[in-house]
Structure formats: structure tokens, C-alpha cells
Design a protein around this nucleic acid. Sequence first.
RNA 1: GCGCCCGUAGCUCAGCUGGAUAGAGCGGCGGCCUUCUAAGCCGAUGGUCGGAGGUUCGAGUCCUCCCGGGCGCGCCA
Length: 586
Amino acid sequence: MLLERYLESLGSEAIQEALGLDGPRPALVRPTQDPKFGDFQINGAMALGKELGRPPRELAQPIAEALTGVDAIAKAEVAGPGFVNIHLEPAWIASKLTEALRDPARNGVPTVEDVSKIVVDFSSPNIAKQMHVGHLRSTIIGDAIARILSFMGHDVVRDNHLGDWGTQFGLLIVGMREWGDEEALHATPVPELERVYKLASQRAGNDDAFAERARAELAKLQNGDEENRRLWEHFVDVSRTTLNAVYAELDVSFDTWLGESAYHDALPGVVEELLARGIARVDDKAVCVFWDDIDSAPKALRKQKTPFIVRKKDGAFLYSTTDIATVQYRKEHLRADRALYVVDNRQGLHFQQLFAVMKLLGVDMDLEHIGFGTVLGNDGKPLRTRDASGNVITLVSLLEESKQRARQRIEEGIAEGRLRVRPEEIDEVSRVVGIGAVKYADLRQNRLSDYQFDWDKMISFQGNAGPYLQYAYARCASIFAKGEVDMDAMAASATIRLDAPAEQVLGKHLLRFADVVYQAGTTSQPHLICEHIYELARAFNGFYAECPVLDAEGPTRESRLGLTALSARQIRRGLGLVGIGVVDRM
RNA sequence: GCGCCCGUAGCUCAGCUGGAUAGAGCGGCGGCCUUCUAAGCCGAUGGUCGGAGGUUCGAGUCCUCCCGGGCGCGCCA
């Protein structure tokens, strides 16, 4: 259940009733910061103090009294300047947890009342280039958001908007003729394409004739030249094979792969429409939207005077043009209500402009730029794709390194008799732990902040890191294995009670899950789920240290098994919502 | 020049959109493995929230200015 929403409605009713108001007022329910103030506090009385011209404490008193009879609330008392502190009734919490335990499909998380069709546009790498650490964020943040929204019950379309149609293909076609190595293209296609691209773009920089040839080849490709088309298709093909391997490793999938090329035919129409409707005009032979021309344009855009160019003076289209066509497609063909663009913060201006244009075009869709910070190096400057020794930090090599480090730790642990991994499971556990560590290091941070890339931190196995959470899960699973108790059967019948302090702490964390999922989903902030699961794992580890499960007896044993099962499922589900897996033994 | 973002413990970061005595991890210090996995648990230490004003019952959070850093700004994506 959505706890805060429930308490908010209780509080709001209590305020209206207790104070004899004509309508409901927000109760402003917030979790308390310190357990001595109870579990939640109602701040609404202080806000009302001014409106009603009465001392907040005086208003808080009847509110607290109105709440004291409610099942969920053990005690409601006035404190400080006018807080109403709510202590939840442990028996009530326990009954809610028991309900969640009986609900393996949803873990007590309700589905949304109004379902939206939401396109999540994420990852979107350029074809013919290797993915590097910079691509990690969009890919895993977008994946996590898509997972969360789906779980909430929304109709989600995961779209990989590949960069498969830009100027780089002119360079690649010319470059392959000049320096291409058939054998290398067959054996290691993407690195070969990258090598050739680099040569070609360098050459184009100081050889105008060469650059001109590249432009001509691009034009031929875009006009349907058969040979160039075949070459391009080959580039796309080998790139997708390589990309798929990375996505498989990351357990990321897409519903559609509608790259820029998919919208090529729509681009002239986009420009025509913008011109016909007077939104864009020609300037120096290029077609641009000038914000100064448009009274209804956002103030910030008008002030900034940066035009939105949709056709270059040479007649070529840009990604701005493609993006407009893409929104139109999503609206008309996909019937989407929303689109989320999981793209680096640095493209903020582009999206601000794009969204403003779509509004001028009258496209009724909720468009959001889900920005994220830049990946920085240890020097605090944007990370270059090469490390100090000149090697490319590809995503594949990052993931490999992490898996290897995980394996090393596991082997040490086995040798020291600490870990329980069976020899035949080492590969799988290394994979789940290694990949999970990388994902967690990224996802646990607020996506908006810049990201300082640090091998040791990213592949950390201690403290607030991926393995900590997976370890807590393995402990849960291990209890059931050792006690030879079937988790699902136990979950279907156990009744949870909260007696010991550590049980109550754990129980209160478990109760918050649905709220956290909803908050993460509505604000597109996967780190909220990471934070919650971390705190849950801590609470579980505390419980684990304090409360014997298998050695307990009767209803206590059953209840503790129930708490363990619910913890296990919530950790597994929560990690699953951000794309991280678990293992039973580690 | 114009526009966006950031500055919180030695380091890396949270801080639920204005609530009470600002929280974690790492590092350092001190404890805990004859009891379900020590990748764990417990404790102590660590802060003028960049600075100065302001708004109000109440500010890390909102406003103004200043200092310091990052990013984006006409034909790349």
C-alpha cells in the first residue's frame, strides 16, 4: 500500500474535522528524522497557524486527538512548535506486511489508476563506434526508469534511437575505400570502423577535397544509391551485433530500434510545415526557428537568441529535424502520452528548444528531458574515452574488469572459508556481482550530479555498494536453505508480528517500499530505490545479528521466517527494478 | 556577453521540493566470529552546509549580491 498517501488522507480529514473547516487541507505528512519523534509527522498545523491566525500548537492538539482512535496509529501527540507526531501501531504494520507477503506478484505495490503510454528514449549510441563508459549512464538509467514505470503499470515503449544516419557515414564510406581492411572488418568490425573513421575525420579536417567527397557520398546514400546503401546496411548490421552483446551483458532490452534513419523520409515535410506555419524562416540559406520572432516562446529562449536550425544552408537536415519527426511519429503512430529522453545534461538547450517547437506545432504530449551528469575523471574534468596509458575505456572492458575483480574476491573468500559459492557457480556469481557493482555505483547517485569515475569505487565490494545488497539477499536465501524451509510456501501462510526492536525497525523499512517505487517512478529517480534497498539491507543485517530465525520457536519462528522472506523478495524486486540481479549463495 | 548546473565531514555522495539536534559509505580509531555466511554487526571521532545579506514561527533547501568550479550557446550528434 501507499503508506504516505494513506496517512496524508487520514491527516487531512482529521484536520478538516478537528478544526471545523469548510474543505480539506494538506496534512503535510513527512517521515520523521529521529525515531523519538515517532514514525511520521504532520506539519500541516503550522502552515494553518497563519491562515487561521491561531497558535499552531493549539491547532495541533485537536488534530492529534482526532487521530488517536485510528487502527494504524498507536499514538499521536503534539510536539515542538506544532508538529503532530504519529507512532504507527506495530500490530497494524505487521498486518500490512503479512498482506504484502501474500502478494508475491506485486509485493504490496498497487498499480497506477491511470495508465499512460510512455516512450523511454535511452542509450541511443552512434553506430560504428564502441560504447564507452559515457554510454553507461543513459543505458542503465533509462533501463531502470523503464522497469520502474512498467512495474507501476504504465504502458512503456523502450526505444533505442540510434545515431545511424549522420555525416559520419559519408566519412566512413570514403574512408573504407581508402583504408578499409576487409579481414579486420570481418574479425573485429566495430574497432575497424572506428579506426577508419578516425583516419577519415582527421583527413577531412585538413583536406577540403576529401571532405567534399565524403559529403557527396553521404548525399548519394541519402538519395538511395544502391552501393552506398549496401555499405551502410553492413555498418549497421555489424554494429548492432556488437551492441547486442553489450546489452545482453547488461540485461537491457528494447521494444523498438527506431534510429535516425527511420525518420529520413519525413524530414522535408517537417521543414515545410515549420516554414508554412511561420514558425521557422530562412536565414543565410539555412532554415531556423528564431525565438525572438515568437511572442509565446519561453522567455529564456528569447533572451538567449540561439536559433534552432532545422536545415543547413547546404540543404542537409540535422538531428533537430529528426527529433521533431520522431515526436510526431510517437504521437501519431504510437499514440504516446509521454516521452522521456534519457540524455546527458549538456543537451539541455537542445531539448528545451525541441519541446518549445513541439508546443508551437500543437503536439499534445508530455515531453521530458531526463538529464544526467557528466562522467568525470579523477581530475574532476570530463572523462576522456582513453585512460592515461592511451587505452580506450570501453564499456565491455569495464564490465570485464568488474567481473574479474568479483571473481578474485570470490576465490579469496572461498579459500578463507568465508563464502559459500560452489565451484560451478563462480562464473554466474562473478557476473551478477560484477555487473551489479558497476550498475549500482552509477544508479545509487542522484542522476543530475556529475559522476566521478573511479575504478575502485565503482567496483567496490564493501559498504554501500552493490554486493552489500546482494549479500543481504544471499543471507536470506541461506536461512531458508539451511532450515530446509520452502520460501514460497512459508510466505503464503506465515503471519508476521513485530516484537523485538530490530524486528520493528525492519518492519518499518519494509512498509515503505510502495511509496519509494512510486516516488522513484514519478520523479524518474532510480537512486531512491537504491537508497531504500540499502537501508533495508542494513535493517535486515541488524535483524540478522539480533534475532535468531531458525532457532526461534512457534509463532516467533514463523514470523521471523516471514520477515526474512519479505525482505528477500523486496531486495530482489527493488534491485530488479534497477536492473540488478541476485544470487542465492555468495 | 547570454543561458543552465554545481559548491554539504579528509575523500565520494544523500538530504523526500521550507520542518525539530544535517545523514551514509570510504579512510582513520576501538570492540564483536564455540549460535542462521565477518562482502557482516556495534561504538567513538569527524560540519561556521563556499561567503554576506534577505524572506518567516522555522532556511542546506526560497530570493539578491559576491567568490570558486563545470557545461551549453548558426549550420556536429
